[in-house]
Amino acid sequence: MSPARPVIRLTDRSPSITGAEIAAELVPPPQFEHASFESYRPDPNYPSQLEAVEALHEFAGVWRAQRPGGFFSRNRKPKAALPGIYLDGGFGVGKTHLLAALWHQAPGRKYFGTFIEYTALVGALGYAPTVKLLTGTQLICIDEFELDDPGDTMLMTRLLGELMATGTQVAATSNTPPNALGEGRFAASDFLREIQALSAQFRTIRIDGLDYRRRDVEGSAVSVDDDALGRMVAGMGEKGERVSLDTFDGLMAHLATVHPSKYVKVIDALDVIALSGVHELHDQTDALRLVAFIDRVYDAEIPIIASGFPLSEVFDETMLAGGYRKKYLRAMSRLIALTTGELPPHD
């Protein structure tokens, strides 16, 4: 019988990350590895969902036109009228699935990442080297384009402007801006206003639909007592599973010292994450760090076991009534899934 694996502490991990490593991670998360237009199931009660699929097929037509077959080939299609497309939908209507499906359609060099991953790439490489790295890319997909930091928005707009001028196509979704209390509201006008000079380069595709995650957050994350947590961690270690164990306060303090772009390496090669002493948060900065961390854990599909407060209830009432409500609801949904072992519908 092999010896039990030692318990890992996330707080002992202070990783570095290079621009090349960030770029290598710019692919759809594992749960969207096989996303396609065919596997997207449009709701017949919302015709705009099928219309969105058709619009994305049209957007991808330029790539089919570029495939071998000669100038007069019947496969040639007219070039997409605009180099950018923006998926404007409410909460939980499948925007990320469709964005990943589009990415899979694109030939050649292409990247898929969240807004924060692209800004982290610029931070790691510098602006000019990032432009050089991404120039010649067929498609840039940006999931959850952040609209709440004017500096980062201007940086990304400038970057995309330079890339689109050289022929790169861009597809994006966005978060609802701060102070937009209705998390299901459409954000196209905000997106187009913030990207200013680039707005004329984007076609906006509106996607209506039910808010699946609102139903998901009616449940609660699973919590166990401290003794049970200890037994579970020990048992997993004896089975050879790679388990981390940290106090909730310890993890929150550690996340404050690590850039969110590095969270993916903090949780590298783990089978399970265990947290003790979970409690309600009252500091919004801490709460937003936890959201960013949970996004990475969810993408990696690593289960969480925890004692104390149910993790889906750590965001206080003030946070849930504020401008970042949409982010917190998404995190709550994901925390329920991660502690119950059931993945919810994807945005």
Rank of each mutant, 00 (worst) to 15 (best):
residue 6 P to S: 09
residue 10 L to C: 04
residue 12 D to G: 08
residue 14 S to P: 00
residue 16 S to R: 14
residue 16 S to N: 14
residue 18 T to M: 07
residue 19 G to P: 04
residue 24 A to R: 10
residue 27 V to I: 09
residue 29 P to M: 01
residue 30 P to C: 05
residue 30 P to N: 05
residue 35 A to F: 00
residue 36 S to Y: 04
residue 39 S to K: 12
residue 44 P to Q: 04
residue 47 P to K: 03
residue 48 S to C: 02
residue 49 Q to I: 08
residue 52 A to T: 06
residue 54 E to P: 03
residue 55 A to T: 13
residue 55 A to M: 12
residue 58 E to S: 15
residue 61 G to V: 03
residue 70 G to Y: 07
residue 72 F to N: 10
residue 74 R to M: 09
residue 76 R to F: 04
residue 79 K to M: 15
residue 84 G to V: 05
residue 85 I to P: 00
residue 87 L to V: 05
residue 93 V to H: 01
residue 97 H to A: 01
residue 100 A to G: 08
residue 102 L to P: 01
residue 112 F to L: 03
residue 117 E to I: 06
residue 117 E to A: 13
residue 118 Y to W: 04
residue 121 L to K: 01
residue 124 A to C: 10
residue 125 L to T: 06
residue 125 L to F: 07
residue 128 A to L: 13
residue 128 A to W: 12
residue 129 P to A: 10
residue 133 L to D: 11
residue 140 I to Y: 01
residue 142 I to M: 00
residue 144 E to D: 12
residue 150 P to T: 04
residue 158 R to P: 04
residue 162 E to Q: 13
residue 172 A to G: 02
residue 173 T to K: 06
residue 176 T to L: 15
residue 182 G to L: 12
residue 183 E to D: 15
residue 184 G to I: 08
residue 185 R to F: 10
residue 185 R to D: 13
residue 186 F to Q: 11
residue 187 A to I: 08
residue 188 A to C: 07
residue 188 A to V: 07
residue 188 A to M: 08
residue 189 S to T: 14
residue 194 E to H: 15
residue 195 I to N: 03
residue 197 A to Q: 12
residue 198 L to S: 02
residue 203 R to A: 15
residue 204 T to G: 06
residue 205 I to V: 15
residue 211 D to K: 09
residue 212 Y to R: 14
residue 213 R to E: 08
residue 213 R to A: 11
residue 219 G to H: 09
residue 226 D to L: 09
residue 228 A to D: 13
residue 232 M to I: 11
residue 237 G to I: 05
residue 243 V to H: 01
residue 245 L to G: 00
residue 245 L to Q: 05
residue 252 M to F: 05
residue 255 L to E: 00
residue 256 A to R: 10
residue 256 A to F: 06
residue 259 H to T: 11
residue 259 H to S: 12
residue 262 K to A: 15
residue 264 V to M: 13
residue 265 K to I: 11
residue 265 K to T: 14
residue 267 I to H: 05
residue 270 L to H: 05
residue 270 L to F: 08
residue 271 D to T: 08
residue 273 I to L: 04
residue 274 A to L: 06
residue 275 L to K: 01
residue 279 H to N: 09
residue 281 L to V: 05
residue 282 H to Y: 12
residue 287 A to D: 01
residue 289 R to A: 05
residue 294 I to C: 06
residue 294 I to H: 01
residue 298 Y to P: 00
residue 308 G to T: 06
residue 309 F to L: 14
residue 311 L to M: 14
residue 316 D to A: 04
residue 317 E to M: 07
residue 320 L to R: 12
residue 330 R to E: 09
residue 332 M to D: 08
residue 333 S to D: 09
residue 337 A to T: 08
residue 339 T to D: 03
residue 340 T to W: 02
residue 342 E to Q: 15
residue 342 E to A: 15
residue 347 D to Y: 13
